[in-house]
C-alpha cells in the first residue's frame, strides 16, 4: 500500500486534432483526441496530458471543446498545456474539465504569474513545464549553475535561466508539480535525460513528471529508479502501438516499481 508511480500518455493537439495520428486498432477516428483519450482511459492510463500546439487563437479555442468532451467520458485526471497565458485561460480550462494546467512561456516571462495562478486556483492544479537543454558551453553559467538552461516556444528560444534554479523558484512561487522535458531528448527515443530529471527531482519537494525521449520500456524504469520521478510521460511509444499501457505498467511492476493495475471503469 503506497502511492503508485503514474504513467501518463501525452497527446499533441493542434486545432482540435491529434498531430501525429494515434495508431490504435479500434479507433474510428485516429485524429480525434477524445477517441484517443477514451482508449487510454480504458487501457488504464493514470492521467492524460493534452499539449495544445495551436498557432492561432481560433485554433486555441478548440482545446476547450476537446477537454469538455474528454471529461464527459474519462474519469481520471487531465492536464492541459500549451498557450496558457492568463488566469482566464486557466479558469476556462478548469471549467471545461481539466484538473491541472501546464504553464511554460508565461512562467518564464512573468514568474509571478505562477504565484497568482496558485493563489487563485490552488497549487494542486498548477504544473510548470520545465523545458531544458544542456548548455553548449558548460562554463557560461559559472560554478553555481547546473548543466541545463530553460527554453521556451517548444525548445526554440533560450531564456538564459538555469533549469534547476528555475525549477526551485517555480515551486517556491506555488507550482504543485513540475513537468520536466529534455528538449535534447524529445523525439529521439534515446531515453530521458536522467541527470536533468534527477537534478530537479532532488532539488524540489513536489512531484516531478519525467518527459522527453522515451523509446522503450527500460527508459520508463530509468526515469523512476534513476531519475527519481513520481510520474513518467510518453507519447509515441503508445500512439504508434509499440507498447500498450498495460504492457508498460507490467514492465514497471516487474522491475519493482509500484503501479496501479486496477481495471478501468
Amino acid at each position: 500500500m503506497t502511492l503508485k508511480t503514474r504513467l501518463i500518455p501525452c497527446l499533441d493537439v493542434k486545432d482540435g486534432r491529434v498531430v501525429k495520428g494515434v495508431q490504435f486498432v479500434d479507433l474510428i477516428d485516429a485524429g480525434d483526441p477524445v477517441e484517443a483519450a477514451i482508449a487510454y482511459d480504458a487501457a488504464g492510463a493514470d492521467e492524460l496530458c493534452f499539449l495544445d500546439i495551436a498557432a492561432s487563437h481560433e485554433g486555441r479555442d478548440t482545446i476547450f471543446d476537446v477537454v469538455a468532451r474528454t471529461a464527459e467520458h474519462c474519469f481520471m485526471p487531465v492536464t492541459v498545456g500549451g498557450g496558457v497565458r492568463t488566469l482566464e485561460d486557466i479558469r476556462k480550462l478548469l471549467l471545461s474539465g481539466a484538473d491541472k494546467v501546464a504553464i511554460n512561456s508565461s512562467a518564464v516571462n512573468d514568474p509571478n504569474f505562477i504565484a497568482r495562478a496558485a493563489d487563485k486556483f490552488g497549487n494542486q492544479c498548477i504544473v510548470v513545464s520545465v523545458d531544458a537543454k544542456q548548455r553548449l558551453d558548460q562554463r557560461v553559467g559559472g560554478d553555481n549553475r547546473s548543466e541545463w538552461e530553460i527554453y521556451t516556444h517548444g525548445g526554440r528560444n533560450a531564456s538564459g535561466l538555469d533549469a534547476v534554479e528555475f525549477a526551485v523558484r517555480m515551486v517556491e512561487l506555488g507550482a504543485g508539480e513540475l513537468l520536466v522535458t529534455s528538449m535534447d531528448r524529445d523525439g529521439t527515443k534515446s531515453g530521458f535525460d536522467i541527470a536533468l530529471t534527477r537534478a530537479i527531482t532532488d532539488a524540489v519537494n513536489v512531484p516531478v513528471i519525467a518527459s522527453g525521449g522515451v523509446g522503450n520500456l527500460d527508459h520508463l524504469v530509468e526515469g523512476v529508479r534513476e531519475g527519481h520521478a513520481s510520474a513518467v510521460l510518453a507519447a509515441s511509444i503508445f500512439h504508434f502501438g509499440t507498447y500498450t499501457i498495460p504492457q508498460a505498467k507490467q514492465y514497471l511492476a516487474d522491475h519493482g516499481i509500484p503501479v496501479r493495475m486496477d481495471r478501468a471503469a
Binding site: 500500500m1 503508485k4 503514474r6 519537494n205 513536489v206
Partner: peptide, 13 residues
C-alpha cells in the same frame, strides 16, 4: 523524501 502534495493513486485501508 516523499513529495508534497500527495498526488496520485493510492489504496484505501
Amino acid at each position: 523524501t516523499l513529495k508534497i502534495p500527495h498526488m496520485g493513486w493510492n489504496t484505501l485501508r
